[in-house]
Computed example of a mutant assay.
Amino acid sequence: MKKLLIASFDMEVGGVERSLISMLDNFDYTNYKVDLMLYRHQGDLLHLLPKKPNLLPEISPYSTFRKSIGETIKDKQIGIGLSRVLSKVHAALSKKIKRIDEPGYFQMQLMWKYALPLLPTIDTSYDIAISYLWPHYFIAEKVNAKRKIAWIHTDYSNIETDIEMDLKMWNRFDHIIAVSEACRDSFLRKYKELETKTSVIENITSQEFIRKMGEKKIQNPMQDDDRFKILTVARLSHAKGIDNAIQALKILKEKGINDIVWYVVGYGGDEDILKELIAKNNLKEDFILLGKQTNPYPFINACDLYVQPSRYEGKAVTVTEAKILGKPILITNYSTAASQIENRVDGVICDLGAAGLAKGIEEILCNQELKNTLMNNVKNKDYSNSYELEKLYKIISLL
């Protein structure tokens, strides 16, 4: 029996975390002994973790990566706290000098680079170690394993990273897995030399679980709202394009389309900025942030249209989940969009930005035939894909 380690950050509400739960639910525990390393034992999805993998005890220095600098220093992790300050200053300077639009990913790289000498190495040896969420420095540098695998969940062509620093890390892995062909292609445009060890395994989807969770009775203001209800489930960040969604709703209102409301399930660092933008555009009653929700599926069930307004994605888990729940879907034309939606068959792909979103929403709103087509084409399709794990087992056997 092979001994595996799978590592991720925590179990806060998010698509990557839900896909991890689905993968662990469907894993082959007869042939693999699985240890799960979460840097921090925190998150509303923690209770959904299956019991079969062995959850390792939390290691204090690693838990700091989901804490503020103040919390880190309060926990007496002074060195790591100072490394975080250094990475923040370094990233801020680079933003000005190199004119980086979104330095968050670069800052995260620096955070790990400066903290690595202060982090303990894991004593246990493994046959296979899997890093499920970037940055992958923990598995690359602090775990003793015969073979190492890293997962890609985002569109790397749209994020600013130090390529040389990243390549040193990627070269410590024997195999790299992307969650879609488009995600793999965008990664290889940046890291062409890694092509021979990069392949695709789709996010594992449990159709039965999603439909069951969608029927749960929860407090949901959408149920009593008679307006045309748009929903987005996403992190409140620049990448997810919620600011463009607000502007799109403003455009629709200015055109006289008033019987419409946009709900967003999610949380994140841009919340205050988005609230200001909502107020500035007089949309407090029409663009509603529902915050963090452990179970997003009853909200998807209650919407009339699911919209993914992202600037970039690897493969949005929520889009597949909306298909499973039989919803018409609109997504922006981010670089990996065609891997998620067949345009005007199981969803509509609109132009990036507020104007494109507004145009796409208006068309679906006014074209009942199109809306019915989208719903009928997803209604009876089977989106379960636990067979995707066979690809992982084959990769492991060949390493």
Score class of each variant (00 low, 15 high):
Ile139Asn: 00
Trp112Thr: 01
Asp123Ser: 15
Ala91Met: 05
Ile128Val: 14
Leu110Glu: 03
Gly104Asn: 10
Leu118His: 05
Ile128Pro: 00
Arg84Ser: 06
Ile130Ser: 03
Met108Phe: 13
Tyr137Pro: 03
Gln107Val: 10
Ser94Ala: 15
Arg99Tyr: 12
Arg147Met: 08
Leu93Ser: 11
Tyr105Lys: 08
His136Glu: 03
Arg84Cys: 03
Pro103His: 01
Thr121Trp: 03
Thr124Phe: 09
Asn144Ser: 15
Ser87Ile: 06
Arg147Ile: 07
His136Pro: 05
Leu116Phe: 08
Lys146Cys: 09
Ile122Phe: 13
Lys113Glu: 07
Met111Asn: 13
Trp134Leu: 10
Gln109Thr: 05
Tyr105Pro: 05
Phe138Pro: 01
Asn144Tyr: 12
Val143Leu: 04
Arg147Pro: 00
Val89Gly: 00
Thr121Glu: 12
Glu141Lys: 15
Tyr114Asn: 03
Met111Pro: 03
Pro120Ile: 06
Phe138Met: 07
Pro120Glu: 09
Lys146Arg: 15
Ile130Trp: 04
Val85Leu: 13
Lys142Asn: 09
Asp127Tyr: 01
Leu118Ala: 02
His90Asn: 12
Thr121Met: 10
His90Tyr: 14
Ala129Val: 09
Val143Thr: 02
His136Ala: 01
Arg84Leu: 09
Met108Asp: 12
Tyr132Met: 07
Lys142Cys: 05
Pro103Arg: 00
Asp123Tyr: 11
Ala115Tyr: 03
Ile130Leu: 12
Pro117Trp: 06
Tyr132Val: 02
Asp101Thr: 15
Gly104Tyr: 04
Ala140Cys: 10
His90Ile: 14
Lys98Val: 11
Lys88His: 12
Lys146Thr: 07
Thr124Gly: 00
Asp101Cys: 13
His90Asp: 13
Asp127Gly: 02
Trp112Tyr: 14
Pro135Val: 06
Lys96Gln: 08
Phe138Ala: 01
Gln107Ser: 12
Asp123Thr: 12
Glu102His: 14
